[in-house]
Design a protein around this nucleic acid. Structure first.
Lengths: 193, 193
DNA sequence: CGGGGTCTTGATCTCAATCAACCAATGTGG
DNA sequence: CCACATTGGTTGATTGAGATCAAGACCCCG
């Protein structure tokens, strides 16, 4: 297969890797697995402005303008697939619009309530970044820096909350590098000491 | 004109009025003027999940499902226009998608930084809910309850911040009912004592 | 008139920010 | 190969901004 088709293939990113940068030109991608952090560049520094997980499409601006509007970084190991050529159907776009609004709602909720609740909700969201439900009892944690930026906390409190969760058995020990075992995380918020 | 066309006309809502409720069926609306608060219903109570201002379209879910997904309430006096019949063009939808992402970014920023900064940013956003730039030096404030829910603060601190802003001359006195005069609000964040 | 909103302001308390130190792990260059 | 800096995570001590609790003012409305 000719290398001209290279951009057409699945791409994999390590945790922390930069996926695309504002101004660069490129195409839209569907996230097959993993979670992505989006930042706006505002007077010189990046400010967090969104999150996208498996199933979401990033870089749709490129269909309008040809280039990316935001900075995208891998929160966890990511697999991206180039998004279909040609103009997407109105129906498809309406679905994506609904999904974007849903994601926006999730987002503001990550900035609400106690530090424990916020991190708990973030973990619950990241859980869904595994495409196969079977894989959803273990997730790779983003860096503390990212966790802090997303939840509106500091790295220190984020670290403290996670330590406490490990101590209380909500999180399993770190196994195999950066992988974490997670326990309940099904429905509401936690309530431990 | 027959009354069957009634729903086709512009509708006006007073501050605090309910615009639509989840589950009801209806159409999508473009906000001609004013700002709208969106809430999800989560196990019995409404949780804030988004904001929409003049130029935004609300209720696009109805094009897919026929009924509204969220609760919409007028933050300020609002004028809504029924959104065009027929399927919207892909290009139009891509624009809306970009706008939705932009709005989501604005949203998380309303939950970041000190109480002063948050309220300041909210005022700056609400300023843009006046369609005519000429009208943008005076805005109607949402209720403290709404301000608090949006910024992730409490009504008490919201009240304190606004009082301080009035004292410092950032906001003019309340004239003509609920209308407020605003002074700078152009670019960055404030910095007063 | 009383009762239920919304707003305001004060007093107190608490949770998370801040400041600071320390420890791997990783990388860099002589 | 060992010094050395750098980066990410952890933990402790202290502080402060905002939450919480409480009370009073001022509507509007039945």
């Amino acid at each position: 297969m000719p290398h001209a088709d290279a951009a057409r293939h699945e791409r994999v990113f390590r945790k922390g890797a930069s996926i695309h940068q504002p101004g660069n030109h490129g195409i839209a991608w569907r996230i097959a697995a993993g979670a992505v952090r989006l930042d706006r560049i505002e007077h010189d520094d990046a400010v967090f402005c969104g999150i996208a997980i498996a199933g979401d499409v990033i870089g749709t601006e490129t269909l309008l303008t040809g280039h990316y509007a935001s900075l995208a970084t891998a929160l966890t190991p990511c697999t991206l697939q180039p998004w279909v050529g040609g103009t997407p159907s109105p129906n498809e776009l309406l679905q994506m619009l609904a999904q974007a609004e849903q994601r926006a709602g999730d987002l503001v909720n990550l900035r609400h309530g106690s530090a424990d609740e916020r991190i708990y909700r973030l973990l619950a969201l990241l859980r869904r970044s595994q495409p196969r439900p079977d894989d959803r009892n273990s997730i790779t944690l983003p860096s503390l820096r990212d966790i802090a930026d997303i939840t509106g906390l500091t790295v220190e409190t984020s670290s403290r909350v996670l330590s406490r969760m490990r101590r209380n058995g909500l999180l399993g020990q770190r196994i195999k590098g950066a992988i974490q075992l997670v326990w309940p995380l099904s429905a509401p918020y936690p309530a431990f000491n």
